[in-house]
Write a protein that binds this DNA or RNA. Structure first.
Lengths: 187, 187
DNA sequence: CTAGACATGTAACGCGTTACATGATTAT
DNA sequence: ATAATCATGTAACGCGTTACATGTCTAG
């Protein structure tokens, strides 16, 4: 199993939901909050080729309507497996510091591709790691802030707040799964 | 004037403060909240070479103590100019969506390298752009959330909260500059 | 004397960016 | 007609990742 880029996983996740063309993917990356990923043809078409070469997805020409050739891709069983493996692997301290985006991508598709039980496990683990890390950041700010220029201190404060807000989010998200499970209510 | 990577600007900002070696920079990226940047020698030494070739910084061998050779770099006048130009350019809608990290890096050094007046201008501009963008994201969530699976909706909610929290931060940061200016107090 | 911090570098590789190229279909 | 949208691709380039290479100085 080779390495897969973030863009590759984003594509795999979207194709897990339903079959789409390269152009469909580009539109999603261009027009929705998934827009952190590149919508450029120079990124997505080569990514599709790589994934296809690895057997993680398959594309077939869609001759529907008088349109120009249009290749529609869908994830293979192997692709779905790779995706789930990546998605459900344990959360490291380093993920919290350097790969928050990746964690969110993993979580975003989790109900659909791994099931709510995994989502709950993920959120519990995320909460635990954030409770460990966030105070150390706040601590760094308290220790070093006073000697820093205002803009530097504020920039750091922004980073700390991000993590604190994420922790609040993580707890509230977990609560939604739990109440749903216990009470059997819909959101 | 060639393009400079984010790592390049981070280095330029740090060398603006004081002269440092490649190893000093690596330690900063490894041990502080500036750790979003790579501390790997394969990233930082080539970056230093590029910046030096562009005349943005100069390194000199520091023979102090019996130590091994140690090259200490400082930003040139040209390097400081490039940095300030990048730092003080206007904030685009695209910056808000795709380059928040870059905006924070620009702001973090601003008091030192451009002056508090620029910091205030920056925060006003940032607040304005965030007030424009954030509601549209919240709107997207309201419109599309109901049809999304819970984990997807929550992941999106996390993104929206990030922006809302950033907006609150931006306003409170601005307030700190303004009260400081009016009251004439030191931090 | 040897492990670990100090200190600087190089080379292969992967992938995203930018720019270019091509062509069909639909709306004005 | 012609601009816009649909639709897919390629090639050069830059830079970060990973891994390797080398050597010094200090502490146990």
């Amino acid at each position: 199993m080779k390495t897969i880029s973030m863009l590759g996983y984003a594509i795999l996740g979207l194709l897990h939901q339903q079959a789409r063309s390269g152009y469909d993917l580009r539109k999603i990356f261009a027009n929705t909050p998934m827009g952190t990923f590149s919508d450029s043809p120079g990124a997505i078409y080569p990514a599709l080729q790589r994934l296809e070469k690895q057997g993680l997805l398959r594309g077939q020409l869609h001759p529907s309507s008088g349109r120009r050739r249009r290749r529609v891709f869908r994830a293979t069983a192997s692709g779905k497996r790779s995706f789930k493996t990546w998605q459900t692997k344990s959360i490291s301290a380093d993920d919290i510091i350097h790969r928050l985006d990746e964690l969110m991508l993993r979580f975003g598709f989790m109900d659909e591709t791994a099931g709510p039980a995994h989502s709950v496990r993920f959120l519990r683990s995320l909460t635990r790691e954030l409770r460990r890390y966030t105070p150390s950041l706040r601590q760094f700010l308290k220790a070093n802030g006073p000697q820093m220029p205002l803009s530097g201190r504020l920039a750091l404060e922004s980073g700390v707040r991000d993590y604190e807000e994420l922790l609040r989010w993580s707890r509230s998200a977990l609560a939604k799964y739990v109440t749903k499970k216990k009470g059997g209510r819909r959101a």
